[in-house]
């Protein structure tokens, strides 16, 4: 089967700032593909090119096998986009927001109404159908934006930070819905800052920084390869411990007040050794996560 998205050597330059610097990736049918990266990594610039919002500076981009931005209308008719900001029509009601959006896709009135009602049920918003969009809570607004992105029954759903700013309950509700959509075979592309979100939703992902792709792969494989199996974290490590670690041929990061050791097989033996001999508290062992991979690859300094 054809790739849903095929991007080759994609570049985007604003003036003298290179936002996206020669990236290549593809999204397979039915998969959820994630783009991760710190602020300013080029995530949003990348997906804006995907839905024809911004022209590419260079490279080749095909969506559903159609060249972009040339075929923007055909591509956008089959794509649902959930932008970072909740750009709902504040003066319109919940149901009107969906119906007005359906008109942009030339969906006739009766089917638009039916689709809108179904989507409101799916997003658990049917009890607020007559409320003005401006009166909704953050989580509800988000779900409405998501419902709106589905009004044209897209084959590809593009989500730019779908759960940023939501409370934990709302995030889980959004995740539930996205998982249900993926279960139905919808291809999803999402950007996120949240590693738990990426681990839970993404079949494959890439981590970007400074406009380039650092790594690409399945979350589990990336964790195994770049962070190992177990992590031992020691708060305020003693100098003797640091000296010991240095002699042991271990992968570690010394952050001053915190020591992080990456272990590729089971860390049990080492953990007992360290906790018995060097520290009685402030020493924990945990599973390696995507967050470890992310921080190792993109560094720990602030991006502002």
């Amino acid at each position: 089967m054809k790739n849903v998205i095929e991007a080759k050597h994609l570049r985007k330059i604003f003036g003298d700032f290179v936002a996206v610097d020669d990236i290549s990736f593809e999204v397979l049918p039915g998969e959820c593909f994630g783009i991760l990266g710190p602020n300013g990594a080029g995530k949003t610039s990348t997906i804006r090119m995907l839905y024809g919002f911004s022209p590419m500076t260079g490279g080749i981009l095909k969506v559903f096998g159609l060249p972009m931005p040339g075929c923007f209308r055909a591509v956008k008719a089959r794509t649902g986009v959930c932008q970072q900001e909740n750009n709902l029509d504040p003066d319109l009601t919940v149901i009107q927001n969906l119906e007005v959006f359906a008109r942009y896709f030339d969906i006739p009135k009766a089917p638009a109404r039916e689709k809108a009602e179904n989507l409101l049920k799916f997003m658990a918003l049917d009890h607020r159908r007559e409320a003005k969009a401006i009166e909704l809570s953050g989580g509800m607004k988000r779900r409405l934006v998501l419902a709106r992105a589905l009004i044209n029954e897209p084959e590809l759903l593009i989500l730019d930070e779908p759960t940023t700013g939501l409370d934990p309950q709302s995030r889980h509700q959004v995740w539930d819905r996205l998982e249900a959509l993926r279960g139905k075979g919808l291809s999803i592309l999402l950007t996120t800052h949240y590693m738990d979100e990426a681990s839970r939703l993404c079949d494959r992902l890439m981590i970007m920084d400074h406009g380039r792709v650092l790594v690409q792969g399945r979350p589990v494989d990336l964790i195994r390869k770049y962070a190992g199996h177990d992590i031992i974290e020691i708060v305020e490590p003693a100098d003797v411990l640091k000296a010991h670690v240095r002699t042991q041929n271990l992968e570690y990061e010394d952050l001053g007040h915190r020591l992080i050791i990456y272990i590729h097989e089971s860390g049990d033996r080492l953990y007992h050794e360290i906790s018995d001999r060097y520290c009685t508290e402030g020493c924990i062992m945990r599973m390696a996560t995507l967050e470890d991979v992310f921080l190792r690859l993109t560094g720990r300094e602030l991006r502002e």
Binding site: Y51, G52, F53, F72, R73, K76, A77, T79, V81, Q83, E85, N87, L88, D89, P90, F101, Y104, F105, D106, R148, A149, N152
Partner: peptide, 11 residues
């Protein structure tokens, strides 16, 4: 309101 942004994600 970013209404134009939303419209630009449609055909």
């Amino acid at each position: 309101q970013k209404t134009f942004d939303a419209m630009m994600a449609t055909p």
